[in-house]
Design a protein around this nucleic acid. Structure first.
Lengths: 215, 215
DNA sequence: CCTACCGATCGGTAGG
DNA sequence: CCTACCGATCGGTAGG
């Protein structure tokens, strides 16, 4: 999976089917992407260390050992899921920072965009947030670095808000950015696609809260 | 461990020693509390499923199998750590709700009190937040119920703030309480005892942000 | 708290 | 993608 889905799973359905798992038709071969998607869901539910390759195979209707026809290792699956998450974040930041919208609007667009990403990719995000720390040292450090860069985008926009006089000068941009990202990442803990607030609503309410809070 | 420590680990030290692990004197027998404390730290670092009983034994200078002289099962350790966390929360809520402080002050006291609990018990809180979902169904549901009750305290105080006219009527107390608890629980992800902000500072800045944001 | 051990399960491979 | 399998490790127990 390389480009983020933009639609949340249809409400009412138990979950998006993870691949061609006898949904009526003949069972086709699984693709590598099917394996990564199923792994995202499994890791989100049971954690990386709580998921076995045999569990994952079960979800796809094949044996654990057969997964190695598609992938090199279990850790590679985690790496791919987590990389998707950070990349989508950075793409969002690039997109928003490239505009010349007023800074308060940029901040809002970052926030709303982030919530929409989380909502449309709940399994990826849950795995990203909870399990990235179990990556091998080198990859984990790279992820931390990219996440810091993403946080930097928030700090930059917050500074622009201060410079424009929209936000009070006494704020600590670093701390506010930390609060904001904590808020955004936690969305995957409680967001339900069948709830009565859309991702955009949620994003707006977070933006309202914070923009008022630091004015 | 039954009553929460109120002091964070001394800055500069690698970590509070988990028991009498040859710190100069003769190695005494470990207590059950030593085992629970060491488990809290290990689960916080590697996750519940990423920690083996042999790992835990190593930290205490004994064999994995010897731990069963102190405890009944691995899951029992997790249960005890998580129960500590929720209980401390509920005790805090009881204490604050019993006062007749103005509601905005009650909210601030809840927030500051929570951050102080997190900061003084980082390992317990990290394990609580990240690993409670791996408890057996029954215990997990009980924890969720108690956590909801704690969140109820925030909703109650928020309603009082609205009734007093301190907070605008248009807020959704449920959503604001969710945001607040997300913010509070995330403190254990980035708080460092040797940082330049005290737990009380952090709590105040969260209270400032939210109280301004919903005024 | 150790010795000695249990059956189950783990991630992964060779060969087809 | 399966068969058949590997060595390592898992949580836990009996007996002292």
């Amino acid at each position: 999976m390389t480009t983020p889905p933009t639609e949340p799973a249809a409400p009412g359905e138990p979950a998006e089917p993870v691949g061609p798992v006898d949904a009526g038709g003949p069972v086709r071969r699984r693709s590598r992407a099917d394996v990564v998607t199923a792994a995202g869901r499994l890791f989100a539910e049971r954690g990386f260390h709580g998921s076995s390759m045999r569990d994952l195979g079960d979800r796809l209707g094949l044996l654990g050992s057969s997964l190695y026809a598609h992938i090199g290792s279990k850790s590679e699956l985690l790496e791919e899921i987590v990389s998707d998450g950070v990349r989508w974040c950075l793409d969002l930041a690039d997109e928003v920072l490239a505009t010349d919208d007023p800074p308060a609007l940029k901040l809002r667009r970052l926030i709303v965009g982030h919530v929409e990403l989380v909502a449309a990719n709940l399994d990826t995000w849950t795995t990203f947030v909870n399990e990235y720390r179990f990556l091998p040292d080198e990859q984990r450090e790279r992820v931390v670095e990219l996440r810091d860069r993403y946080q930097g985008a928030y700090r930059t926009v917050l500074k622009e808000c201060v410079a424009e006089g929209y936000v009070r000068e006494s704020i600590d941009e670093r701390l506010v950015a930390t609060y904001l990202l904590s808020l955004l990442n936690s969305v995957c803990d409680w967001y339900r696609p069948d709830g009565d607030r859309s991702p955009a609503d949620i994003g707006d309410s977070i933006a309202d809260l914070v923009l008022e809070g630091i004015r």
